[in-house]
Design a protein around this nucleic acid. Sequence first.
DNA 1: CGAATTTGACCAGA
DNA 2: TCTGGTCAAATTCG
Length: 383
Amino acid sequence: MHVLAPHSAGPPFAPLLAGRREGKGIATLHGDQLGGMDDVVSQIGEAFRLAGELMGDLPTATQNDPAYLAARCYGIARAYNTAIRMLQHYGAGAVPAQRPLDLLRPRGTEEAAAGAASQVLGEAATTTHLQEPFQTPAVARAPPHAVADVAGTSGGPVRRLASSRSPPPAQPRQGRRRRDSGHRETMLVPAHRVGNTEIPPDDGYTWRKYGQKDILGSRFPRSYYRCTHKNYYGCDAKKKVQRLDDDPFMYEVTYCGSHSCLTSTTPLLNFPTATATATNSPTAATGSSGLARADQFMAPAEQVAVSTSMHLGVGWMPVSFQGVVAGSGAGRGSGADMLTNVSTAARDTDYPALDLADVMFNSGGGTGIGMDGIFSSHHRSDG
DNA sequence: CGAATTTGACCAGA
DNA sequence: TCTGGTCAAATTCG
């Protein structure tokens, strides 16, 4: 366990704007990883953070992209869902037995939309996905020869015309293995709709790219990442990022293995000051969980490693509900369909979650200052 | 100089 | 044999 000293300096996005080099991965929280109250606090903070991001995107995103908005709202609501579930798990009866997933279940909509949403939510309920915003260095809009990975690269696009590499080793390499037989999970991630749409959003982990391949039948290359902390902690988490052929604004990300490191599992959280204050208990500040941590609790070095998702974040779509637990491409296209369905539901139905949104966005007293107040106050949290 | 990316080669599985 | 996944030297950048 490492104690995260209270930290106050600069705007909350400062670490994000500092030009970090590493990509971040999405955090998937599984049932056996359910932690204590600090985790719950982190989860709530994550939901706040996602909501703040959405608020920032509203001026542009609302114009012509209901699917994008639906995805974002989905991510927010799911974050709260996860918090509720964690509370129920943690409280063991002390928490009212509300069904968290009902927060998102559409009422009285066409079955397609409702079915899609229910499927998604059902999956989230069973695996307790904690979807952090995500960013990955993968870029693949243009042919691989013309475009290099952008986000998170230390040197930006690098293209060599000719390789001067050494000849192959005299002795064949040994121990190279494939087909990791660990946990695999595929998710669909929308690309940014504002700013650089070439990169999927941050997911809160730090990844190091170790390969890129042109995949047969795919227009875009597939990028391979492993956890940055593999060497230090033996963390075997990996992920593959593949841009969908039929939807260039969607990435298919497959996670292989799970994080055994702690430092990579610190997706950026920007707790509202009030929230941070309310939860700034010793437990919250010193919790051992690898889950998100308010960045004002972070030491500067740790802030460097946090997510860029504050301004890049986009909710993730789990694909495993489609049965695509393993195997890339199996769910290709379906995820987009799901997104569309969710989008439809979002347009045509009212959600109980609106109550939640009302609380979130109007907590300041109906003048819209609720979130503004929360997040603006937070802007000085790490100054 | 260390860390991260690029990219051709290598390897394993289908 | 083909294809995807991984390795590792070369390269780049801060």
